[in-house]
Design a protein around this nucleic acid. Structure first.
Length: 406
RNA sequence: GGGGAGGUACCCAAGCGGCCAAAGGGGGCUGACUGUAGAUCAGCUGGCGGAACGCCUUCGGAGGUUCGAAUCCUUCCCUCCCCA
């Protein structure tokens, strides 16, 4: 298939990016008329993609659709260092079998958003592990401590006298070397990756390669509206979450995030998004209704329009109408656990796994957060009668239906 | 190598022999209000226990002193600062 003209490609690629370093360089590369090698470095943990990841992945997909090649670099070796943001944990080295097994997982997960045919999955231990100490020293001589300390998290930690381990300083270098190893033409990343990606450019130039173009995508704030979306912070919306979950989570976003989400997470054309922004600002649209549209748009991308509509109806019933969800997870409970058809409430909640501990159950009950068949219960220590189909609700959104078994 | 300061619950941070499951703040959870938003108000925020000023585990690790230790001693590990 023929490729679009470089300018047209650039025009498409430019959207939804924060920065391209540099556009001229990208144009030059595109003008070479060959498929570019577009690199994206990813975490070695088993992927569980969320809307934040989706931004950069969809950008990568766009490259693929334009005829370029995606290279996912799994940072299994850099994982030994742990991302120096100071937040993530270092990870033990993966055994070869694990790696082999993981490739499959990555392929599956990423093919949800990428074109599998044009995706290469590689592990950076492949080229980083064989390096000798001599090689590492040579490599390290290509940059300076001051240069590395410019990275904001290092700079900050240095200023605040927080520990910075020597090997952490090597992290950007490792990532840069990845670009050299695969001879990347373009590296994608969130804005927090700017330093690392630029390091790739520098190292490539040092070693006689044409420097990669760095294309940065925005970081998406998570449900809390403050920190970037991340699974470990518990503020993420996973792209494989069921429609109802997804829809509900979007509805719980802070209002201020609506427009950015429209812009980065939906297919709504940009001019229209600007229109919505104005309407919202001028009070011509109820924020809730706009958010419902947002929730619908996002859910539809991953589950289809049909499912999105159903999720919306469900949402209206449960939260606007304060009714019970249509589908409630059933939890099996043995009749043997009952005494005269009754059971202590605390035990019941624990058995149904609606609470983490008996103490938590007591607290929740005491706070009026628990109801049985719609009746609020106040005493955690009384026995309650349990029948097949009993509806148990904890807090706003935890539900379970009892299924009695022999 | 020498000298000094530190390591407390999810995070920050008080406590410095009993009244400490451990102040305060953040975060989180529940309730009221509401648009499952925000703001606000109230409560909760180690576990076990049918109640308790009850029991168990927790204050970097391991020992010890004491009727009793997060708090004192010994030792080990870790971090920061200054000097070399």
């Amino acid at each position: 298939m023929g490729m679009l003209a470089p300018r047209e490609q650039l025009e498409l690629l430019r959207r939804g990016t924060v920065e391209i370093i540099s556009e001229e360089a990208l144009l030059d590369k595109l003008a070479q008329g060959r498929p570019l090698r577009v690199k994206l470095g990813v975490d070695p943990t088993a992927p569980d993609l969320h809307l934040g990841n989706a931004i950069v992945l969809r950008k990568l997909r766009q490259f693929q659709d334009l005829g370029h090649e995606a290279i996912l670099v799994i940072g299994d070796f850099t994982g030994l260092i742990g991302d120096p943001s100071g937040k993530s944990e270092t990870r033990p080295a993966l055994a070869p079998e694990e790696i082999a097994r993981n490739v499959q997982t990555y392929r599956e997960q990423y093919s949800l958003l990428l074109d599998p045919v044009r995706t290469r999955v590689v592990f950076n231990s492949q080229w980083l592990r064989p390096l000798t100490f001599y090689d590492v020293i040579r490599l390290a001589s290509r940059t300076t401590v001051h240069r590395i300390l410019e990275r904001d998290d290092f700079a900050m930690r240095f200023r605040q006298h927080q520990p910075i381990h020597l090997h952490e300083l090597l992290y950007p270098l490792c990532q840069a070397y990845d670009s050299v190893a695969i001879e990347a033409d373009v590296e994608l990343g969130g804005t927090d990756q700017k330093f690392n990606n630029l390091m790739g450019r520098e190292l490539q130039r040092e070693l006689g390669q044409e420097p990669q173009v760095v294309l940065l995508t925005p970081l998406l704030p998570g449900l809390d509206g403050v920190q970037k979306m991340s699974k470990s912070l518990g503020n993420a919306i996973g792209i494989t979450e069921p429609p109802r979950e997804m829809y509900g989570k979007v509805m719980s976003l802070p209002d201020e995030l609506m427009i950015p989400y429209f812009e980065y997470c939906t297919l709504v054309p940009l001019p229209e998004v600007r229109g919505l922004e104005a309407a919202l600002r001028e009070g011509r649209v109820h924020p809730r209704d706009l958010k419902k549209r947002l929730a619908r748009e996002i859910t539809a991308i991953y589950h289809g329009a049909e499912a999105a509509r159903a999720a919306e109806q469900e949402f209206e019933r449960v939260f606007s109408g304060r009714e019970v969800p249509e589908e409630i997870p059933e939890v099996a409970l043995s009749r043997a656990a009952l005494r005269d058809g009754r059971m202590r409430l605390v035990h019941l909640l624990a058995q149904l796994e609606l609470v983490d501990s008996h103490s938590e159950a007591r607290r929740l009950v005491g706070q009026g957060g628990v109801s049985l068949d719609g009746q609020r219960v106040q005493d955690a220590d009384t026995e309650v009668s349990v029948h097949d189909g009993l509806l148990v609700r904890v807090g706003r959104r935890r539900f379970a239906r009892v299924r009695l078994t022999a």
